[in-house]
Simulated scan of single mutants.
Amino acid sequence: MQQDGLILELQNGNQRAFERIYELYSESTYGIIFSIVNDEKVAEEILQDVFMKIWDNASTYDSDKGRFFTWILNIARNASIDKLRSKDFKNKRQNLPSDNFVDILETRTNYAAATDAIGIKKFIGALEPICKKLIDLLFFKGFTQKETAEELKMPLGSVKTKNRACIKSLRKLVLE
């Protein structure tokens, strides 16, 4: 079954189509989730939540607005960032041994591994350095625009404007 037919079947509530979509996309979706939360159990939990959201919200997918995989990745990214920002997650992280933070620090400074998780490293690599930093902080590390402005020592308005321009450049590279 072609992808369009599979998506249509999913939107019609076909459980087999959902199972097939899970088979096709769960591994790469888990990769992006894990690159954000850096915790296997939490990533597995989020993955299940993401696929429940896909099932529940399949009717909202519109192929005119973007690719299906991009839609899934946005759901996964948003769910991961929501989890990172949740009080429950922050409270669990408060009393961790210092060994855990070595990995977190490496992850927070290494966008290359995060971009490899979804296969867009070559596209991001073609962007100017400020765009690489902005995309890494905002999309892969889950920083807010305000946190990004503080991290890069830029005015908040400049971060917003530059981010729009960078995403436009990235979109152009990906769609060419």
Rank of each mutant, 00 (worst) to 15 (best):
G157E: 10
T148E: 02
R93L: 14
N91E: 10
E40H: 10
S59G: 12
A112F: 10
L10E: 01
D64L: 10
E19Y: 04
I54P: 06
Y25D: 00
G125Y: 05
A117F: 03
T109N: 13
F34V: 03
N100R: 08
K65A: 11
E27I: 14
L105T: 11
L84D: 04
E176V: 05
L173E: 05
V37C: 06
P97M: 06
D56L: 15
I46K: 05
Y61Q: 03
G66D: 00
Y111L: 06
C131H: 01
I81T: 03
C166F: 07
S28T: 08
L138V: 11
E128D: 11
T60P: 00
S98R: 09
F68K: 02
S98M: 13
E45T: 15
N100T: 01
A126Q: 15
A113D: 13
G5Q: 12
R16W: 05
D116Q: 13
M154G: 01
F51D: 01
E128A: 09
Y22P: 00
K172D: 12
K83A: 11
C131W: 01
L134E: 01
T161H: 04
G31Y: 14
L156R: 11
N14K: 08
P97K: 05
E19G: 04
D99I: 15
A117T: 15
Q2G: 00
I46T: 04
Y111S: 11
I104Y: 12
I36W: 03
I135V: 04
Q15E: 14
C131D: 04
I72M: 02
A114S: 14
L127D: 02
F101G: 02
C131I: 00
F101P: 01
